[in-house]
């Protein structure tokens, strides 16, 4: 992967921009010390040292990734150790398995877990609650859960970083990080800073 920028204190991190709250992740990553790029094509994926899969509609993101030949390149780079952070729909995309997938819905996979979509309910049940996240110092983060998934079950290698109502809502497995909630909507960049550090560690 000679095209990938490696050792740098300002890592180049892409945001998968097929659909979703891309701009908010750009802002959070920039505030956390990364250089950001839009990723919609395989050649753009090859240029980044880390990737964020944003919040959005997981069925839409999955279908577009398949239609434009991104799914296999994504899987290949995840297998090769690319650090990836997924929020909400991004968490679903990083799960090895969806409990109740729609017809034709595939994931990138990488984290040994089963996720339940819209587990906390419909939009009327969307909520905010403070959340202590392991590895994020300085008090709880504001958890913003929007039609959010939770982790139904996770394998031994997936470390739970936060839970809500007894369900894991933040997990990490090696260079992969996933949250049910949306730190990109809060103006608090500590979760993104954690991910930027993971990208820096992977580049060394």
């Amino acid at each position: 992967m000679s095209t990938v920028s490696t050792v740098s204190s300002t890592p180049v991190i892409g945001v998968l921009a097929l659909q979703g709250d891309v701009r908010e992740h750009f802002a959070a990553l920039a505030a956390a010390g990364a250089e950001t790029r839009t990723v919609r094509r395989p050649e753009e994926l090859a240029e980044v040292a880390g990737l964020v899969i944003p919040g959005g509609e997981s069925t839409t993101i999955s279908k577009l990734a398949l239609a434009f030949g991104l799914m296999e390149p994504l899987r290949a780079r995840v297998r090769a150790g690319l650090p990836v952070y997924g929020s909400c729909a991004g968490m679903i995309m990083l799960a090895d398995k969806i409990l109740d997938p729609r017809a034709g819905q595939e994931t990138v996979g990488g984290i040994d877990m089963i996720v339940r979509r819209n587990a906390f309910g419909r939009q009327n049940e969307s909520f905010e609650a403070p959340l202590e996240v392991r590895g994020v110092e300085g008090g709880p983060v504001e958890g913003v859960f929007i039609r959010a998934p939770w982790v139904e079950s996770a394998g031994a290698r997936a470390e739970t970083l936060a839970s809500y109502d007894g369900h894991p809502v933040a997990v990490r497995q090696d260079a992969l990080l996933a949250t049910s909630f949306h730190p990109e909507l809060t103006g608090d960049h500590r979760v993104h800073a954690l991910f930027v550090d993971m990208v820096r560690d992977a580049a060394v």
Partner: peptide, 9 residues
């Protein structure tokens, strides 16, 4: 925030 998730769609 719900509407932010619909962007690009």
């Amino acid at each position: 925030g719900m509407a932010e998730q619909l962007k690009g769609g």
